[in-house]
């Protein structure tokens, strides 16, 4: 297994993160997030490197990581579309809109477009129920969706 190298900047960020906690392992989620934000996935090599930083076994890192839904081991598209399908959105017709979105992107839910631009996932409640139906694209929330609005949003992303 090749050795994973953090960049200088990352190393700096890592020291900053570590300062927040009296116990190193607390930095595990933040470090995984840091890696994923730069690599769009967390590779086994990165898990080993993170484990070394925090004095935990790589198995521990993988165990923790696989518990959370936001980490990926496969590369995802540049834009990760998380479409809320929980109850408030369901009541407001999200199923049809999700279908529409998939059709527009020409993929099935759970897939990534062939140009690796979009990945479309179902998501559980994102705490924006009063704006249902809604979706999250990378870090941005989009509420009160309609077919037209979805088209507009997707078209505006490059």
């Amino acid at each position: 297994m090749a050795k994973y190298k953090f960049t200088k900047n990352q190393e700096k960020e890592i020291s900053g993160i570590l300062e927040k906690y009296p116990v190193k392992t607390s930095a595990l989620l933040p470090l995984l997030t840091l890696v994923q934000r730069s690599d769009q996935l967390v590779s086994p090599e990165a898990m080993v490197a993170i484990g070394e930083k925090l004095d935990v076994s790589p198995a521990y890192v993988q165990s923790v990581m696989s518990f959370y839904t936001m980490y990926h081991t496969q590369k995802v598209g540049k834009y990760m579309i998380l479409f809320c399908i929980n109850i408030s959105c369901q009541l407001n017709g999200c199923d049809k809109l999700l279908e529409h979105t998939a059709r527009k992107l020409n993929i099935k839910v759970g897939e990534t477009t062939s140009d690796e631009k979009f990945t479309l996932h179902r998501e559980e409640c994102l705490a924006a129920c009063t704006e249902a139906p809604m979706m999250r694209v990378n870090d941005t929330y989009y509420g009160n969706l309609t077919e037209q609005r979805i088209d507009q949003i997707i078209d505006s992303l490059d």
Binding site: L29, V64, T69
Partner: peptide, 19 residues
């Protein structure tokens, strides 16, 4: 990082401790 159960207070603590 995406887990409803982490709202439960003791699960939250585990998560905050890196578990």
């Amino acid at each position: 990082a995406g887990a409803y159960i982490c709202g439960e207070e003791s699960a939250l603590l585990n998560s905050l401790e890196g578990g």
